[in-house]
Nucleic acid binder design. Sequence first.
DNA 1: GACGCGTGGAG
DNA 2: TCTCCAAGCGT
Length: 290
Amino acid sequence: MPELAPPLIRWYRQNARDLPWRRAEFRARYGGWGVLVSEFMLQQTPVNRVIPHLDAWLTRWPTPTALADDAPAEAVRAWSTLGYPRRALWLHQAAVEIRDRHDGVVPRDVGALLALTGIGDYTARAVAVFAYGDRHPVVDTNTRRVLARAVLGQAHPGAPGRRDLDRMSGILPASVPDAAVVNAAAMELGALVCTARTPDCDVCPLAHMCAWRLAGSPDNADAPRRQARYEGSDRQARGAVLRELRAAASVPLDEVIADWPDPAQRDRAIDSLIADGLAEADDGMLRLPA
DNA sequence: GACGCGTGGAG
DNA sequence: TCTCCAAGCGT
């Protein structure tokens, strides 16, 4: 199989989106912290919804210490409707850890990054590579799909695993800056061209060497795991509770989503939010964590 | 390893 | 309308 890196690099130089965290001014102003915050927000939330919140967040909390010195409740409020509010809590906790263990500087070492709350294989390497320019494999869902198709000849990637990191390492060029570009390019290609539903193979720089394409674009069995139904779910109830808590300093416990159709589910939602640290109850009131 | 976890835009 | 899905993580 021919090398994937050269066409990826050429394509990226021509087609990369002008996103805030890729601009020199952004790096100069916010450094690793800006990249870290953007990566937290981008975990499962589309780029277009992240951009305005990222700007507001970094203006308010331009350093990890600034966030760490503020209350978790403020982080959850500022998270607004980005979704998965546990990420706001984790980001705040990571800021505390950075302040207390790393002198307020986002670490560069992947092991140190992995030790921070809310940071896993993807985010740790994304920060090391995109903020600090080091050479590591960065593997997200886009990259996994590109590799599944181009290298393995499968329509959908299988379950995530260590093999993904090894596979990505296998296509990284020796040059450190080029390796960073290939990481970004694989993600960008997956986001813009080699998409989950309707890939645009006509404009794909890898089409001529794509194992999946060359095999006739077969559909493989292991399609990605389907999301549970949202309507009527506990998640929906949690979302409704949190929406109320964000809007007020505190809410009387018995008034929290009082007209929710399923009272047992309402109680379950409140209890689980407390268990997650996203809410606190005292004196008959419910509020975001102080 | 599979599951639970928000929200809103696109097709 | 409804289904799919979007730069994951912790358990």
